[in-house]
Design a protein around this nucleic acid. Structure first.
Lengths: 331, 331
DNA sequence: CTGAAAGCGCTAACAC
DNA sequence: GTGTTAGCGCTTTCAG
């Protein structure tokens, strides 16, 4: 299982040619005379030769590997990002070096810096404040950021967060809701934008938003926070959650607490994770094109690596409202 | 963003020592005289030197990278495997090179063979028949298989599949169900074992199993197959699904078709994916310790790489029944 | 403790 | 078309 692999030299010897010829052959760099080609082929597969990508990389400086740093592989949003990124990578003959930072900011930098050394470029998802992310520009490798960060001068992409919650609020308003709560995740940069989006929409209707924090972007966190929202002094008839996971947990706990959904309260999420559809009531949410974001990030990175002109700008994705059964008209 | 990185030679020059000394220093291979150590430190961080892992790997033959090949990152079962494997890898200072074969057998071999060249060892999840998996033993790298395959002589691990469905059938039997259907995924090796487990249990009660195939291990497939199961000639009062995803899809569609769950039919899955809990009715399932499997696979691999004696055997995990609301007593 | 030198397996000029 | 040769950035004997 671990026998020493034959090298290019072994092949050269076996085929009676020079190493340079073998190298050119495996790289398909040119054409060869029939006898040489035959001998090469024979030597290669009789020895079971496979070129050593490490040695090649050391010279060319390219590894055909892209680093992808995400915050939590358990979150279906990121799973979809990985899926999209992986698909494009494969198509361009790259492989993915995955790093899950597990929402741990302390580790993040070390992990990503180490990653940067083994790849040609990287896609990074991070919650670090822009001010302390300067190091990302000093990785000596092209980086695509999965969030807006204008001051860093890095290519980036993300959705219009303000719009997500604006849409949600408008939808709920149209349905006749009047008492709004927002269950957020304060550590995320984009939490503010989401609060702002909902607030603005509500303000236009003369309403206010009761803001809560779930402290984690997970279903468990949503469960834990439910009673504080539903049994507090401002019982809402509509709650907008930071993401689908929180919403799913919230709905489960609300049901346990004896509320009938969506009759007693309408709930919405953001992300359009695959399982919102299978919850009951099926979750109204906003699709943020997670998979597409992964694809686009990878595409931009690969273009950059190929030397194509890359607008070092921000690409904004359009969110799309997905109405399901967790929101209903208020008589 | 791409300035040429300083090399060990630059450091040596700046510090006025030899490259060998620098090498030993960054590898913490020995102790140094105070003045040398000071100069080294100064040179290294004034240059911002970082050792090039590729060059190191080429010599040592080790990359500190583990390859993980899974069938579908969208499936929460595999997500959990990744999570577990990643946690252990990180702890031992390894990184994960992830490959998602997307349930595509044709690509699988190529992808994995390529992967094998860039890693120290690999963990492989595959549906390939044992007979045609011989190549996995010829990768020249340690491999841990995420399924039973005795003839290959590779370390492997998995759960007792026979027991999963046996338990499920027994549970449903105890609840008074009598008309059983199984909604499987024929392409999986373990489908047979699961059918057998349920069958055996039912046989003991003088009952039979009505076997169907969903053709994919996904929620969509479960939805599509529902009507054939529920509206066919043998309407069941209990259905055991190949996995949670299929069960979730099945339940959704059954509800659409007008069935009341679990009153009209009890449904079970296998895997204990996080979202079964948030479906309604919450899904009765069998926990197969996905995350733990990932951890154990990684641990065994790392032990093997560290030269520790590794029983080239199969480790079997115990499934555990999780009863929730999708199964109920039959009056 | 420190240094000199010989490569790891391969590519990339440049000759022939 | 094919061969020669000089390294890539680093580790690793082996002397001193």
């Amino acid at each position: 299982m671990k026998k020493a692999s034959p090298t290019i030299r072994d092949v050269a010897a076996a085929a009676g040619v020079s190493v340079a010829t073998v190298s050119k052959f495996i790289n398909g760099a040119q054409r060869f005379s029939a006898p040489v080609e035959a001998k090469l082929r024979a030597a290669i597969d009789s020895l079971g030769y496979r070129s050593n990508p490490l040695a090649r990389s050391m010279i060319t400086g390219r590894t055909r590997t892209i680093g992808l740093a995400i915050l939590d592989i358990s979150n279906p949003h990121f799973t979809n990002v990985v899926k999209g990124a992986n698909r494009i990578a494969l198509r361009h003959d790259y492989t993915l070096l995955l790093v899950d930072t597990e929402e741990n900011q302390a580790r993040e930098r070390t992990l990503i810096e180490a990653l940067a050394q083994r790849v040609d470029g990287l896609i990074v998802s991070s919650r670090m404040p822009e001010e302390s992310s300067q190091w990302m520009t000093e990785l000596r490798k092209p980086v695509v950021l999965m969030r807006r960060a204008d001051s860093l001068g890095l290519p980036s992409l993300g959705i219009d967060n303000h719009l997500t919650t604006y849409m949600l609020a408008r939808h709920l308003l149209n349905q006749g809701h009047r008492r709004f709560a927002y269950l957020g995740f304060g550590q995320a940069r984009l939490n503010e934008e989401r609060i702002e989006g909902a607030r603005q929409c509500l303000a236009e209707a003369g309403l206010t938003l009761d803001v809560h924090d779930a402290h984690a972007p997970t279903a468990e966190a949503g469960e834990r926070s439910c009673s504080a929202v539903m049994l507090g002094p401002n019982q809402p008839d509509a709650v907008i959650c930071y993401n689908d996971l929180i919403a799913l947990g919230f709905m489960k706990e609300a049901t346990s607490l004896g509320f009938k959904l969506p009759r007693d309260v309408s709930v919405t999420g953001i992300d359009n994770v695959p399982y919102g559809e299978y919850a009951s009531p099926a979750l109204t949410t906003v699709d943020i094109q997670s998979e597409k974001m992964g694809e686009t990030a990878m595409l931009r990175l690969i273009d950059a690596l190929a030397g194509k002109r890359d607008a070092v700008g921000h690409v904004t994705f359009e969110p799309r409202l997905i109405v399901r059964d967790s929101t209903m008209h208020r008589g």
